[in-house]
Amino acid sequence: MTETIGMAPDITLADIDLLLDEVRASAARVGAGLGSLTDVQAREPSALPGWSRGHVLTHLARSADVYRWLLTLARTGTEPGPRADAAALNRALREGAERPADELTARDFPVARIRVTDLDRAWTLAPAGATVTGPGHSVLAWFAGRGTGPRLRSDVPLPTPPGWPLPPAPGWA
Score class of each variant (00 low, 15 high):
Ile5Phe: 03
Pro9Cys: 09
Thr12Ser: 04
Ile16Cys: 02
Ile16Gln: 03
Ile16Phe: 01
Asp17Phe: 00
Leu18Gly: 05
Leu19Gln: 06
Ala28Thr: 02
Val30Arg: 13
Ala32Ile: 05
Gly33Trp: 02
Thr38Pro: 02
Asp39Trp: 02
Val40Ala: 15
Gln41Asn: 01
Gln41Gly: 05
Arg43Glu: 06
Ser46Cys: 10
Ser46Phe: 07
Ala47Asp: 14
Leu48Trp: 14
Trp51Leu: 01
Leu57His: 07
Thr58Asp: 08
His59Ser: 11
Ala61Gly: 12
Arg62Phe: 04
Tyr67Cys: 03
Arg68Trp: 06
Leu71Phe: 14
Pro80Thr: 05
Pro82Arg: 15
Ala86Met: 04
Ala88Gly: 06
Arg91Gln: 13
Glu95Gln: 14
Ala97Leu: 02
Ala97Pro: 00
Asp102Pro: 13
Glu103Ser: 11
Ala106Trp: 11
Ala106Ser: 15
Arg107Asn: 10
Asp108Ile: 01
Val111Cys: 07
Ala112Cys: 09
Thr117Trp: 08
Pro127Tyr: 10
Ala128Pro: 03
Thr133His: 05
Gly134Cys: 09
His137Phe: 04
His137Tyr: 01
Ser138Asp: 15
Arg146Gly: 06
Thr148Arg: 13
Arg151Lys: 14
Arg153Val: 02
Asp155Pro: 11
Pro157Gly: 09
Pro157Ser: 09
Thr160Met: 13
Pro161Val: 04
Pro162Met: 06
Trp164Ser: 12
Pro165His: 00
Ala169Leu: 09
Pro170Tyr: 09
Gly171Glu: 10
Gly171Lys: 10
Ala173Pro: 11
